[in-house]
Amino acid sequence: MAHTPEMERSPETLPANHGVPEMDAPNIAILRGALVSGWQDFKAAPVFGLLAALACILAGWMMVGVTYASGHTFWLILMVFGFPLAAPFAAFGTYEVSRRRAAGQRVSVGAVLRVMWGERNRQLPWLCAIMIVVLLFWFFLGHMIFALFLGLAPMTNISSSLTVFLTPDGVMMLGMGTVVGAGFALFLFSMCVIGLPLLLDREVDYVTAMLTSVQTVMAHPWVMLPWAIFVAGVCLLALLPGFLGLLIVLPWLGHASWHVYAALLDGPAQS
């Protein structure tokens, strides 16, 4: 049954669709179309995306302040590479905005927040908990990599000098950290690229959502991996101007991520 603007979903109402839907094969045209549709959604309903991005920016500034106050500025590197890992969760609200626009439903900050609040009783918190554990483990492992190569270096304060990274140990540390960080990013991307919108759209358990997402990425690596690299690269570039680039990038990619999922469904996202 098609949704109408009058059929608003309350926080207590579960999605009408149960189980994992059949999904079409992704292609580059779908990704391009998702970026265009995502930008249109952002322009049509920018408030929620801007609020989510602003929250991420404030969190980033706070983390920078803590690292400088503590004197452990090497944590900034881990934060910069770890920040995109949490981007899918931060953009979750934009999925609901795009879902509502596609279904012809009213879009407002209050309506979106009510749906997000209602997710606390479903499977989303479990997936978010896994994302947080992975992010914390990345910080722990990244710190170990830093200590392994540069722990005995006379200068490890990146706020006063970057020359430490030009030494052989510094180059090796950056190389290993990049490889390990890319592995973490790919792992989270594989879990979330389909898993997060699937949890919003369907009544499935979080394990099924994660497995479905990973299987999609593994089945179509030559399409999904370039998408992952694009998302990670744009997010990293958005961090350079004091995190302010996230005001545009985070909502845009959040909306686009929903459209990638919706385009892969064998039928409309909500039926």
Rank of each mutant, 00 (worst) to 15 (best):
G142P: 14
T208R: 04
S161P: 12
N157Y: 13
M172I: 12
L196T: 00
C192G: 09
L152S: 15
A103S: 15
S190M: 08
M144Q: 13
L148G: 06
S190E: 06
L127Q: 11
D201A: 12
F92S: 05
S160K: 11
F189T: 03
R100D: 02
M191I: 08
M172Y: 11
M116H: 05
S161G: 10
E119K: 03
F140N: 08
P197Q: 08
A102C: 06
S190D: 05
F165I: 08
F89K: 04
R114D: 15
T178R: 07
W138S: 09
N157W: 12
R99H: 14
M191Q: 11
A111L: 08
T167P: 05
R99T: 06
P125N: 08
M173W: 10
T163F: 15
F139D: 04
T94Y: 00
G110C: 05
P88Y: 03
M116C: 10
M116E: 03
D169V: 04
A90L: 13
Y95K: 02
G181P: 01
D169G: 08
L196S: 02
V134H: 00
L150I: 09
T216G: 09
L141Y: 10
S98Q: 04
L200E: 02
A147S: 15
A90P: 02
V115E: 02
I132C: 10
R120K: 14
T208V: 06
Q123T: 03
R106I: 14
S98G: 12
